[in-house]
Design a protein around this nucleic acid. Structure first.
Lengths: 181, 181
DNA sequence: TAGAGTGTTTAGAAAGTACTAAACATTAGA
DNA sequence: TCTAATGTTTAGTACTTTCTAAACACTCTA
């Protein structure tokens, strides 16, 4: 194996680790993806551990997470008991799945929080300025969340990014007969 | 102060903490925003610390972060030496600023990583299948990042979410004469 | 210029997270 | 059924982050 190629790969793998960390995942998830993304074919769990110089147990846990996130998939070779993994090469699929999961979790959680709050406010016998203000704010947040959720779901429903001319949308919205939400 | 209102507020504040944590920020940043978002007016740093039952030092650090993120702003009262803070009520402004910062950081970093990689590959005298494959993958990721960056920048350039009919875009992309990127 | 009021910084404790080595479980084949 | 190959789980350690209390710095006014 060419030494300089390894240097390049290492830099890239490291970068993927940084991004994973930035998104709140374990850096090893990023390393695994980076390593496999550059691989024309699959690698066994053990090779991944060796290449990344990380314990087998650590890879076992993080490769499962990567699989769960749709970043890698398991493949088998006939007559070989090892598990092999390869990267999902379609980056839009990867981002889409991760973002979808996050979006759903966060949106549902936030809406639940707001609903609980509004219900609590309804039950109060007092109707002070304070209470009315809180109600107003919760309603504002609720409708904001609904709008963003619609937009993000729309984006995430695209099969590919081709033609997703989001930049054009604001223009479209200013056309006669289509001016507001 | 109504006890039940406090209960409702506490639930909401807690929820904001969870969301902040989920986005990779300190939960106290979320608490501060939640508290101020429900406040019709401003609160001093010290009141914030008391309400949230968190040390003054902790609030000092996290309220500065919230300010940096555009979630709260400092206001002053004549003849009062305290700093007062109020929440930015426009949620789109908040999200936009936070997302913009993250997007820029991540995009620049990823592009830099890829560029370094491609430059490194250029310098190799060998031109094996491995090297060609790595080059191909780095180029794929590069163009993917450019596309997403365009889309996200487009979204973030909107002053308001009104009319951002992103859901309509895929339809638009299937119109005759506008079928591919 | 002493003292009170206010926000910031810091040292160290506490809490939380991630990692490894080793034990464990499962399967396949001898 | 024994052994080797493989992946998973776990106990304990190391590392990282977060938090508080206290020291500090600044500013205003008496």
């Amino acid at each position: 194996m060419d030494d300089s190629l390894v240097t390049v790969e290492t830099g890239f793998i490291d970068g993927m680790g940084q991004l994973a960390d930035y998104w709140g995942y374990n850096k090893v998830v990023g390393w695994i993806y980076g390593l496999l993304y550059l691989q024309d074919g699959s690698l066994s769990l053990e090779s991944v551990a060796e290449e990344l110089q990380v314990s087998k147990g650590n890879i076992s846990i993080n490769i499962r997470e990567a699989e769960r996130l749709g970043m890698v998939k398991k493949v088998w070779k006939k007559g070989d008991r090892k598990d092999y993994y390869e990267a999902e090469p379609n980056l839009w699929q990867v981002i889409r799945r991760i973002t979808r999961e996050r979006q759903k979790k966060e949106f549902d959680f936030a809406m639940e929080t707001i609903k609980t709050g509004l219900d609590g406010l309804e039950l109060l016998e007092s109707n002070t300025q304070q209470v009315r203000f809180a109600r107003k704010r919760l309603n504002q947040m609720s409708s904001f969340l609904k709008s963003t959720n619609t937009i993000i779901s729309g984006l995430l429903s695209l099969e590919t990014l081709k033609g997703a001319a989001v930049q054009a949308c604001p223009v479209r919205s200013r056309l006669p007969g289509r001016t507001s939400d």
